[in-house]
Every structure is written in C-alpha cells, then in structure tokens.
Nucleic acid binder design. Structure first.
Lengths: 222, 222
DNA sequence: CGCAAGATTGAGGTCGTTCAAATAAAGTGG
DNA sequence: CCACTTTATTTGAACGACCTCAATCTTGCG
C-alpha cells in the first residue's frame, strides 16, 4: 500500500518555492554545506560516495559532449535529492545556480538509513519515480515541441513550482537554452514573442517574469 | 551496502537479446499473458492498478500531444519492468512492437512482495535508477545531437543490447523517428549515409542491420 | 561613470522537414 | 506460383524553423 501513498514528485512533497525555504533534513545527515554560485557539487565520472539533498538555493545537473555541447537534465530546488546513482560513478555534473545549501549522505549508509526511517525510503522512491516522469515529459519537449512551445512549457512548469504568477528565474538564458535544446538567441526571441502576445511581461531585470495569461501559456505548452 | 551492488541497469542484469529469451518471473506473478503486434498493454491516463514485466518480445512506451505528435520514451525488452508509476495513473501508453509475453503484478501488493523478496526490491530499484540514467542520456540525444549522431547512438545502443554485430530491429522507421525526434525520411537518409560510409550494411529486408565498424559508430555517437 | 557580462535584435545560412514520387517488400486471393 | 494490392522504405526537390554570426542594448558592479 505504501506505493499508493507516494506523492507525484519530490517537488510536490516539499513545495519548494524558488525563494529560500526552511527545510528539515533527515537524521544521519551531515551539517549543511554551502556552495557559491557556479561552484561544482559533483562531477560526471567521479566516484559517487555521497548523495545530496538541497536545503536552499538551486542546482543544475548536466552532461557534456566531447566538443562542449551541453544538455541540462534538470534544475533542482530545495527538498530534491541529487547524485543518487545507479552505477559507481556520477552520471552527470551538478553546479549551484545561486548560493546553495546542501546536506550530504554517505551512499554506503543508505541501507541502514532506510531501515531506520521508512519515510526516507518512501521519499527517495517517490523522488526517483518523479524524476523518471519529469524526464519523460522533458523528452516530449526536446523531441517534438517547437521553440515557442518549449519556452511555454518551461515557464508553465516554473510558475507551477513558484506558486503565484511571478517567476524569479535563478538561471541564465544560456542555462535555459541548454535545458530546452535551443540557443540563447531563440530563447530570447521566443520570450519576446510571448511578451508581444501579452502572455507574459518581462521587467527590466530580465530574470523576473510576470505571467499575464496562464491559460494561454498552458495552451501553447500543449 | 545493497545499493552498491546494483547493476548499472535492468538490461544489464538480464542481458535481454532482442531474440526471444528465457525468463523466470518472480513469485506472486500472474500467468504469462500474450499480446499481439501493435496491441496496447496500458494507456496513458488509465488507473495504474498493475505493473508488468516483459518475458518475451518488445514494447514501446510513448506519449502523445493533442495534435498527434508522438514521443517514444523507450523500447523495452525481456526482463524490463513497465508501468511502474509515481502517480495513480499511467503516464504513458505501452504497445507491443512484436508478439509479446508479459507477467503482471498488482501494484497494491508491491510492499508485501518486496518484504518477501529482497531481490525484487533491488531489481526494481536498479531498474528505476537505470531508467533515469537512460532517460538522461536520451535527453542529450534529443537536445543536442545531429540526425546522424542520433542514429549512430541508437544503433550503438541496440548493438550493445543484442550482443554481436547484427541488429534485428523490432520497430519500424516511424518508431525510430518518434524515438529520436526525427522524421522517417531523415531516419532513412541517415541510415543510407552510414551505409555509404561503410559503417553499417542493410540487407534487403531493411529490419536487419550489420555493423561493419563499431568504432566508427561509437565515434559518431560521441 | 566606465567596463564587463548578459540579453536582445537583425541578417543570412543550414539542417532537417515537408510534400511528392518512386521503389521495394509483404501480404492476398485466384 | 503468380498478378494485384497494400504498406513500408527510400529518394528527390523545395521550404522553413532554428542556428550562426554580428551588432546593439541593458544591467550590474567596481
């Protein structure tokens, strides 16, 4: 029955607004570690001895091709687990988008931890199932949606995560481009187009976005 | 410690060649159910009361947009679990590529099953972690690789799954296109280009592919 | 204020798509 | 076993969405 109680995704369990969020780590966690903007948390290929939970801030996880092309798998917010791997090594690199707080867990202690704390097992399982689901939704974005649909989908998800109608993007246009399989120019043009259609409004700072028409945004996202 | 014993992916645990494969289901499974080519196993949006394990054949799981655009998340082979969901409903549709055998498990019995059989818990966990990893690798394909690189990556993975140097594709060009975010024409042209470069050879049936130069294929895949 | 970094805008090029036709393969009924 | 149909795949030509390259604008910061 436990499985039926799983929430749809980890980011639903912990509502995780982009603004800083009070978060209670599980027992056996290390003290909170702080990493600065653009600092690496772990690197693809390194031995995965720890996994992490975000307490504050935001993180990008990505892979690189030999020639430098980058694909950002996901952006992670407080409550999310990162670096929990199938193999012995990290399969992607993680960097802080903004100053970020983390608690780390020893991977080898995972069995003992879930034995002591069944809630953690459920949370991890739900997190993983949610990650698969979000990854599959993102494949649809990357494989079959147009540039405008990609941006609309992305902003729709962000506004959902943020709660209200205001998005405070913690990432650059370059990050968005590398997440959506576009270039920064196309990201910029698509945002401008959404503003021209009165679906969003982008004030001068360019990192804040007001959603003026959620329905139209959801409609474009498909 | 259990986590460290996980194999990289379910398809490594069960080597699953595309040819039929003897497979021993876990206790508490239903008798094997057979579904014909192109028959649906479950449908996106339906209540997920069961999940399934493939004993024989091959399956595609996909999502549709309102206008019919399709994204095939993955192709599944004997040993793979499908339909294990985060939420109450199936998040994608599953169809048999070829006549396929399945055992089904009641989702509500999952907790009891893993209590009785720790191997199953490990296998499911490994399967899920593997799914996340493969999904992330596929995002790189969809977001950042060229058509030729996508085909090379796909054929490289298939030849790896098959063992030898001969791939017997259970899916059509349309399926490949909808998996790789391309059109059937581009799939066809890219395959022809690989043959022109003597990297593969495609006999008359067009469903069998001989890999003549694995190194060149891996090189193109990045 | 002046500079560096990020974002936007413009013009032209390219890769993959679209539309169309040809070819090949697999099935069907006589 | 062979015409005939149906379906899948390949090939060709033209188009278009997004990319590339370049310039301009904006913002934040010392």
């Amino acid at each position: 029955m436990a499985l039926l109680q799983f929430a749809p995704s980890a980011s639903t369990i912990v509502p995780s607004p982009l603004s800083s969020h009070i978060f209670a780590p599980f027992p056996q966690s290390s003290p909170v570690r702080h990493v600065g903007k653009d600092e690496q948390i772990f690197i693809e290929g390194d031995e995965a001895r720890y996994f992490y939970q975000i307490t504050e801030g935001a993180v990008r996880t990505f892979k690189l091709l030999s020639d430098g092309r980058r694909q950002i798998d996901a952006f992670h917010l407080p409550g999310d687990f990162i670096g929990f791997e199938a193999g012995a090594e990290f399969s992607s690199t993680a960097e802080a988008l903004v100053p970020t707080g983390l608690v780390s867990y020893r991977r080898c202690r995972f069995s003992g931890m879930i034995a002591q704390d069944p809630d953690l097992a459920n949370l991890m399982m739900a997190g993983m199932l949610g990650a698969v689901e979000r990854a599959q939704a993102h494949m649809m974005v990357l494989g079959r949606k147009t540039a405008l649909e990609r941006i609309a989908t992305f902003l729709g998800l962000m506004v959902e995560r943020c709660g209200g109608r205001v998005i405070d993007l913690p990432m650059s246009r370059m990050d968005i481009a590398d997440h959506l399989g576009l270039t920064i120019e196309t990201v910029s043009r698509s945002m401008t187009e959404l503003e021209r259609r009165d679906i969003i409004h982008i004030p001068a700072h360019r990192r804040t976005i007001f959603v003026r028409n959620r329905l139209a945004l959801a409609d474009l996202a498909n």
